[in-house]
Nucleic acid binder design. Structure first.
Length: 565
DNA sequence: CGAGAGCCAT
């Protein structure tokens, strides 16, 4: 059992030989406080409260611990009620009100406590600064930083983080370089700031100078490699981590899932479970991405079951991921069902279900959802309209796509981004209106990107417009000389127009430039088997029946009949 | 008992 002697012993082992006698509890109270604190850390707020209520006398630490328990449980009302009932408060009591409010999304309320408190510690200022940074109010954070009476390494680190989030890496670095007492957290903030701003070389250069590399910094670098598509480098770093934690596992799994390596992502997830690492909320999110990439309904359902077991089935971000997974795995009805079970859909959930209907070509349903979203009092954003546009595309509705584009820009005053333009160009040019597609491109307020030219080039191939195909292919190669799709589509356009000499020219140019085209492949899951199809590959045992079925489908598509299998 | 970092849904 812990008593005062033990407490002193523990503290002295941590190098704190002199104890502030005033803050030390009597042995009984101290012991209860320790037990309450343990219960709170284990998430057992009810048991903690019972112990708290049974205590014959309580000190300020007992109250603070109990209040923290309610903040952890997001029970703002009870936290504030207890705070009001406290007989005495210390600076820690006030500080936990500040961080509690911030944790629960109410920065204004946090600021009220900050202003009201009789005396502030460095931690009070730091809590306020990091809170403002969390809410993207970096300018205000900086103002507080400037007027605070004393600063420590945490204050600096919080502001460096803020500047980095604002994209101001130059000033972040200045502050970092001027700081003599950097610690591992400071280094990690700076490195992940570079990664966040896609300055990967700077991130790695700083990382190489970091004296003691910890798992947080390594994970940031892994994320950087994954964003660049250098998945092998990421894997090497990951394997080298001695003490892998859930976050580093999640980063690596997500790297595979987001680089089209769904199977490897799932393998890694299984390995994580085998090494008895507990998956968390984020693990499930990234594994669901892998299921979507693989279109594996089986795996997706298993993850769904795991989420239910973990008590996370109504977690909003997981629900959104389930919706995407079910939709991408072909089950729009499950996706729809998930959406209906969300009590309070926020914009992301609306956007997700609209995207799902769009993927399935259900234009009317997508629009009905947009209508419901507005009727619900929400405001659509650029992503909502991107999904609506994509619904138009899947349904081949050119005029509607232009209509919705205008609604977005004129009625909702949402500035169109390059994705909106590439979607529009894709729709218009697929319909054969190549000139109109060019008009859209020239009306863009910024440089067209690869997706725009790709869309145009794809249509040129279909509608045999050699001249425009050459233009688009040139633009694509300008943007990325290793773009094999550009060469292939241009070559196909020449071939379809009988310009064989030009075909040969493009092919030899590809060889010269060392551009290679990975063969296309697709697969689908039936029962417990995965059927894979490589381009030009006829090794599937049922290939004859598959081809004849495909011929039927093509015929129906051409005659615009509905298909009944 | 309180303040700073990495992974995370459209």
């Amino acid at each position: 059992m812990l008593n005062l002697f033990h407490a002193r012993h523990l503290l002295s082992r941590r190098g704190l030989h002199t104890l502030p006698a005033r803050s030390l509890s009597t042995p009984d109270v101290y012991e209860c406080n320790v037990r309450i604190s343990a219960l709170v850390r284990a998430g057992k707020a009810v048991a903690a409260r019972q112990l708290f209520d049974e205590m014959p006398e309580r000190d300020v630490v007992s109250w603070n611990t109990m209040i923290a328990a309610y903040w952890r449980a997001s029970d703002c009302v009870e936290s504030k009620r207890l705070f009001g009932l406290m007989p005495r408060r210390n600076v820690v009591s006030w500080n936990s009100m500040i961080s509690g409010c911030i944790e629960n999304g109410d920065i204004e309320e946090a600021f009220r406590y900050f202003q009201e408190m009789p005396e502030r510690s460095i931690a009070s200022w730091n809590a306020m600064i990091s809170g403002l940074v969390k809410f993207d109010r970096v300018d205000e954070a900086e103002r507080l930083f400037k007027v605070m009476p004393r600063r420590n390494v945490i204050s600096y680190t919080a502001l460096i983080d803020g500047l980095a989030r604002n994209g101001d890496m130059r000033r972040a670095r200045c502050l970092f370089d001027s700081l003599p007492m950097k610690n591992a957290v400071t280094w990690a903030v700076m490195i992940s700031g570079y990664v966040e701003n896609e300055m990967f070389d700077e991130a790695r250069s700083l990382f190489s100078q970091m004296p003691e590399k910890n798992v947080v910094a390594i994970t940031a670098i892994i994320t950087g490699y994954c964003k660049e598509g250098k998945i092998e480098n990421a894997r090497k770093l990951f394997e080298g981590i001695k003490e892998k934690d859930p976050v580093s596992w999640n980063a690596m799994i997500s790297g595979y899932a987001n680089n089209e390596h769904g199977a490897e992502a799932l393998r890694l997830y299984m390995q994580m479970l085998r090494s008895s690492m507990q998956p968390d909320h984020s693990t499930l999110l990234v594994v669901l991405t892998a299921c979507s990439v693989l279109a594996s309904l089986q795996c997706g359902k298993q993850i769904h079951a795991t989420a239910v077991k973990m008590g996370l089935e109504s977690d909003i971000s997981l629900c959104n991921s389930f919706m995407t997974m079910y939709s991408k795995c072909g089950s729009i009805s499950d996706s729809d069902l998930m959406f209906r079970n969300i009590q309070n859909p926020r914009l992301v959930s609306w956007n997700t279900i609209i995207a799902a209907f769009a993927q399935h070509g259900l234009y009317e349903k997508a629009c009905a959802m947009l209508h419901d979203l507005v009727a619900n009092g929400d405001r659509p954003d650029g992503i909502t309209f991107l999904s609506i546009l994509s619904a138009c595309g899947h349904a081949g509705m050119v005029n509607e796509s232009i209509f919705w584009f205008n609604v977005m820009v004129l009625e909702y005053q949402i500035p169109p981004r390059t994705e909106h333009f590439s979607c529009l160009v894709d729709i218009v040019s697929r319909a054969g209106q190549l000139e109109k597609a060019c008009e859209v491109i020239s009306a863009m307020p910024f440089q067209a990107d690869g997706a725009v030219w790709s869309a145009l080039l794809g249509a040129c191939q279909v509608y045999l417009n050699v001249e425009l195909a050459e233009l688009a292919a040139n633009k694509l190669v300008e943007l990325n000389s290793q773009n094999s799709g550009a060469y292939v589509m241009l070559s196909n356009t020449y071939a379809a127009s009988g310009k064989w000499r030009d075909v040969t020219k493009v092919r030899s140019l590809m060889k010269e430039q060392g551009v290679r085209k990975q063969p296309g492949y697709s697969w689908l899951e039936m029962g417990d088997k995965v059927h894979m199809f490589l381009r030009g590959d006829t090794s599937h045992p049922d290939i004859k029946r598959i081809h004849s079925q495909l011929d039927t489908v093509y015929l129906h598509m051409k005659t615009r009949h509905t298909i009944n299998f």
